[in-house]
Every structure is written in structure tokens, then in C-alpha cells.
Amino acid sequence: MTEVNPVVYVVDDDPSVLKSLERLLRSAEYSVRTFTSPIEFLDFQHLDAPSCLILDVKMPGLDGLELQDLLVKRKITFPIIFISGHGTVPMSVRAMKAGAVDFLQKPFMDGDLLDIVTCAIRADSKGRQKQRELGRLQLRIKALTPREDEVFRLVITGMLNKQIAYVLGTSEKTIKVHRARIMEKLGAESLADLVRLAEKLGIGSSAD
């Protein structure tokens, strides 16, 4: 869609299901990679492309949910679409909590799956974009001096310069200078910009 053709990975131990899924995704012009077991999938070197994973829950050996846990631990963040012949509520809750995109009950309508796949690819694509943006922001944050970083974390809490100076035991004037340097380094034009930026980086909430 954008730079690279998106890829859909499918893991299911039932060969006929696997084969039919491959055909369906291919007909929707996705490039498809099929695996009959999670282990096989883990061994595969993933492509750097927007992608999603269609994962059967019940499989011999490692099952779908366990594979999901493993991927989370390895910080491999595909959108995962679970498909299950006998999904239970606890099963789906667990999957969704661990970040699954959707939990489809077999048999499902081909359109439903394709819609979810499209959404997932888009989300992954967005995620990848966000990731890249975040990377850039983090580089900027790293450019701050320790004192500037200190001041930045207090600014985003909404404190006035006078208050910050009092906390840090310095003058309001010095804080004003720091503040200007921070705005410049982070490319922010207002306090609102700074707050949004901190939010993106996950700073602030962690300070509480």
C-alpha cells in the first residue's frame, strides 16, 4: 500500500484450512506466508513490511495463545487475529488482553476476515509510522541536558516558572532560559505541544 507490499502470516495445523486461507488472502492480493505450526513460524525471519498474523488457537504442541505470549515477550508486535473452532470466553478475553486484534469463531465469512486483515494491516502500518516518529522524538529528548530534562518534566506538569525555580532552588530567570532552550530543541511552539510530546513518549504518567 505504501512503500512495501503488506504480508499476512497464517498459522494453522489443519492443512485444508491453511490452504483455503492462503487462497482467500491471495485473491485479495496480499502476499501470504503459511505455517502449519507455531514453531515453524518462530523460525521464520520476518519481513519488514506491514503485516498481520492469523493464528489458530488449538494446535498440537505450542498453541496459538502460547505463541502470542512468546511474541509479546520478544516484543514482536504483529496485530494478531485469532481464529478458533471452539473458542471460549476466557480464551478470547486472554487473547484480547494480550493485544489481539480480533478473535474470529470458525467458520467465518470471508469478507469479515478480509476486513479485519485490512484494518490490521493499516494499524500495523500506522504503528510502524508512529514508531518511526517516536524514534525521532526520542532522539530530540536525548539532546536535552540533564538540567533541561529536569525542567522539562516539571514544565509538563503545568508548574509555573516561579514554582519550578523554587523546587530546583534557582531563579525564575534561569528557568525561563531553560524553557526556551527546551522549546527550541524539541521543536515545540507552546506548552500544549510540550505536553502532547511528553504523552507520546510516555513521560509524565510514569512520573506519578
Binding site: 489443519d14 485444508s16 484450512v17 490452504k19 483455503s20 486461507l21 487462497r23 482467500l24 491471495r26 485473491s27 485479495a28 488449538k58 481464529i83 478458533s84 473452532g85 471452539h86 470458525k106 467458520p107 467465518f108 465469512m109 470471508d110 469478507g111 476476515l113 478480509l114
Partner: peptide
């Protein structure tokens, strides 16, 4: 049991959808 019946049904549905597209 549902799983066992659902497997072929799933495959049928997927195949049918694919066929329509092809």
C-alpha cells in the same frame, strides 16, 4: 466436535470466498 465440523466448514467458506474473487 464443533471444532471438527468447523474446520471443513471454515475451509469451505474461505475457498468459496477465494473462488468468487478469482
Amino acid at each position: 466436535l464443533a471444532h471438527e465440523i468447523n474446520q471443513p466448514l471454515t475451509a469451505i467458506l474461505c475457498n468459496a470466498g477465494a473462488a468468487q474473487r478469482f
